[in-house]
Design a protein around this nucleic acid. Structure first.
Lengths: 210, 210
DNA sequence: GTCTATAGAGGGATAGAC
DNA sequence: GTCTATCCCTCTATAGAC
């Protein structure tokens, strides 16, 4: 096999080193796009703004990404594993490790306001059926709920889920709590400690010490 | 006192009846604006779209509201008491009645997707400091947290708050839960019962039967 | 790979006629 | 109170030069 495809780029018959600058540009564009989409949302965020931040023209930017929605998809794809990396998913997947991972994620989020803004803004915007990221968010929530539900099921089997709590309900409520805390935190970062409140929430769900 | 001011309108020296049609138009505009701002947000929602829905020109609409942000303020002001009406605020304010009121509010919300969309979309958009509704949402959350905190303080005094739960934390988390459930509900209305999940949440906060 | 130029759509707001 | 006409801005995307 002589061809490798990475996204839409083709790297056939040329030395890799000559693409270093292109990849750097792409990364710079994605960083700027994250900022802009986070602050203005997708619909109101402009390619012009992104291009300015990265120091190039709109046409220059569109050489790397054919259009705006492709750029959004690339931003989401790039940041997607961010959350997942906090949770051991393979054979090390466990109940308590997932809960701890979510707490660490909340803590990490508090250090990256831009990313919090991005997901908060885009998930609300993305509730519209005609939004380019609509299906992305549907899939993302479905997957996350399932993952967290499995974690709580394990905790329940260990006898550490509080009476009356079901794994499915607790999973949906965990995501809701994380999302909702972010809104209040973005409005006023001093009014609320996201990690501490998420921990308080978990204390009402599981019976072991946290 | 010969003058009455209602918003920016002045009704001096003319019979009230002659304004019935104007008020009707204003209401129609506000209804359309709610739909548009709910579906597209403030920044991407257009006066043009709102005017079309109400069957008039942009200039005609702008006769009633001088500009776009004034229109947004009017939409928010009009729908603001919606939530408050579910909670007895005067001398009848109480712990359990507030919790019940919030459950009824969640139930009402599920029957008015447009209003849920509006607040979900705008509160996320409004986290930006330059958004015209930014301060509105800061004030709104602060007021709501205080109100709910007072309710939980009463419940605590009655010995019905679960051990380890503080009124302030429970208040912030109650709002977070309501907001977060709405996002998931808007993405897929069959995946989740907002009222039931809010009730499940309250069960982890208070110790009396719900 | 990046630019200029431009097309073509859509937006907020104002002036002035009726 | 509502309209048409208009101004001037912003936006995405494409064509084609370099």
């Amino acid at each position: 096999m002589a061809t490798t495809t990475s996204g839409t780029r083709r790297r056939v018959g040329k030395p890799r080193g000559s693409y270093a600058k292109t990849d750097e540009k792409r990364r710079a564009i994605l960083d700027a796009a994250l900022e802009v989409f986070a602050q203005s949302g997708y619909r109101s965020g402009s390619i012009r703004d992104i291009a300015e931040r990265v120091g190039m023209s709109e046409a220059g930017l569109l050489h790397h990404f054919p259009n705006k929605s492709t750029l959004l998809a690339a931003v989401l794809e790039r940041r997607d594993d961010r959350a997942v990396q906090f949770i051991p998913l393979d054979e090390n997947f466990g109940g308590r490790s997932t809960v701890n991972g979510l707490l660490e994620l909340a803590s990490y989020n508090a250090s990256e306001p831009g990313v919090v803004e991005l997901y908060c803004t885009l998930s609300a915007e993305g509730t519209s059926p005609d939004h380019p990221a609509h299906q992305y968010f549907i899939d993302r929530y479905e997957w996350s709920r399932g993952m967290i539900e499995r974690a709580f099921t394990i905790i329940q089997a260990e006898g550490d889920l509080r009476p009356g709590v079901t794994p499915a309900s607790a999973a949906a409520r965990t995501l809701a709590m994380m999302d909702g805390l972010q809104v209040q935190w973005l409005l006023d970062r001093d009014v609320l400690d996201m990690t501490e409140e998420l921990r308080n929430f978990f204390r009402t769900i599981v019976s072991y010490e946290l």
